[in-house]
């Protein structure tokens, strides 16, 4: 299923309330009927322009290969013109419907999806690619560039008409490896955002310098009187505890005080 791949694996917005309202980000959230916020990371003009350049080069290469066809005066030229037409209009549609993105976009990790994160369909792909004529005006996609700069989700006119987004696509992350440190019980009442941050610290800590790791760990473990490597070990122990699934949120829900009936 490409739709779920294209979406952030975590898919959630655990710290939505903690982000200040004016915060700037390139994520567009789409709430599903199940109340899950899908996070779509929209792609901006620079990476899309590069993808376009790659696609143009691929098409040019195909045309250069097909150039000898022109030597045949009648049929050859006809086939060449048909090829030209197909490459201009059907090449993006074919790849977008088939694989979710043209080769250029795939090389840069981009995917075309509907606004709700589902894979792009034939009609939407046709509309967004036919409207390239308008985006191209007056030359070299100037209108599309301005539209990308102005729109919140970097959509060009074709995307606006077809209701599509170009998003960053990353393959699902491998499951975090088990931590080889003994689990330690974290202080009670850690909010889920902080739990995620502690897990991320344990996963990404190896790429940080040791001094920086200690500095970060001391923010959390400092009040408990731990410094330096001891603080790092403590925070990693908490991460192991959280990763084992024990958590410290109540696993045992209390009976509803309002005494609701079981569902019929």
């Amino acid at each position: 299923m490409r739709a779920t791949d294209a979406v952030e694996p975590c898919g959630g917005r655990p710290d939505a309330r903690r982000i200040p309202p004016s915060s700037i980000d390139t994520i567009r959230f789409h709430e599903t009927p199940e109340g899950i916020d899908l996070a779509l990371r929209v792609a901006g003009p620079v990476v899309r322009a590069l993808a376009l350049v790659i696609d143009v080069l691929i098409r040019l290469a195909i045309l250069v290969v097909a150039l000898p066809l022109l030597a045949l005066p009648g049929v050859g030229a006809g086939i060449f013109l048909l090829l030209l037409f197909g490459l201009e209009w059907l090449y993006p549609v074919f790849y977008e419907v088939r694989h979710g993105a043209t080769p250029g976009k795939r090389a840069l990790g981009l995917t075309v999806v509907h606004e709700d994160g589902t894979p792009v369909g034939l009609s939407a792909s046709l509309i967004r690619n036919l409207l390239r004529v308008v985006d191209f005006l007056p030359l070299l996609y100037a209108v599309g560039l301005v539209s990308c700069l102005v729109d919140r989700d970097f959509r060009r006119l074709g995307d606006l008409a077809a209701g599509t987004l170009v998003i960053h696509h990353t393959p699902p992350q491998p499951q975090a490896q088990g931590l080889d440190v003994p689990p330690r019980r974290p202080p009670p009442g850690l909010p889920s955002a902080l739990q995620q941050a502690i897990l991320a610290f344990a996963e990404r800590g190896r790429s940080l310098s040791p001094a920086r790791r200690g500095e970060l760990a001391e923010i959390l473990a400092g009040p408990h009187g731990l410094r330096g490597s001891a603080a790092v070990a403590a925070v990693e122990g908490w991460a192991a505890w959280i990763a084992s699934g024990a958590g410290d949120a109540p696993a045992l829900p209390q009976p509803n005080p309002r005494g609701a009936q079981p569902p019929p």
Partner: peptide
């Protein structure tokens, strides 16, 4: 991570 740690530190644990 620093931002997440500091924010958690500055707010009471269950205020989230």
């Amino acid at each position: 991570l620093e931002v997440a740690f500091r924010r958690a530190h500055s707010t009471p644990p269950t205020s989230g």
